[in-house]
Amino acid sequence: MTYIPFTSAPDDPYRMGQQRGVHGGGHARGYGDAGPAPKRVVVAYGFWIFLLSDIVMFSAFFATYAVLHGRTAHGPTAHELFDTRNTAVETACLLASTFTCSLASIATAVRNKPWFYAAMAVTCLLGLAFLSLEAREFAGLVGRGAGPTRSAFLTAFFTLVGCHGLHVSLGILWLLTMMAQVFAKGFRAHIERRILCFALFWHTLDIIWVAIFSIVYLMGASG
């Protein structure tokens, strides 16, 4: 079978947006008779754009924290406040939950309900463990007089880490919704797309946590 140069733009080495390997590989998706990309790809791409905008929002909070982390108003500093062991346990919870979330995605791909429920339940429990550790840490800080009103540094800290915690809480609500929807409706195409978006959301939260534990906790503890 010969390659038909007609179907791909000459300045497009990757021949993006084309259906390959079937029907002779000559049908251009989005350009011609092969039609637009599958809905799964479109939905996930749109959600990926949303996640990137969420990351941009977090970058503003990171910038605020980076600018203000020395403005302690003669109050406690990051070095005095943060407990690296607590952060390590939180990190372990979130990292493990990202892995179990992957297992749930794989279970969805092969339509295995028991494994899906098990993986999602473990993800949920690990997320709740993370949230309870964070809540305990926040309560401890406020109890020691290091609440968000103490200094600009602590305001920025509670905003940044609290915003991530809020995302995790919403993620857990979404997770439970997905379990209920799979229970009620099974692995239908639109449910699978929602599970795909949820998995992307959960993995992205872990990426943001990597930045938080590195910049806020580890640099704070070593600095």
Partner: peptide, 23 residues
Amino acid sequence: SEFDSAPGDEEAQGGVIGAIRNH
């Protein structure tokens, strides 16, 4: 692969074992 891939899509080849090994 046959189509453009979505972010988060599981790899088609390798099956469940391959996907779990990757993760």
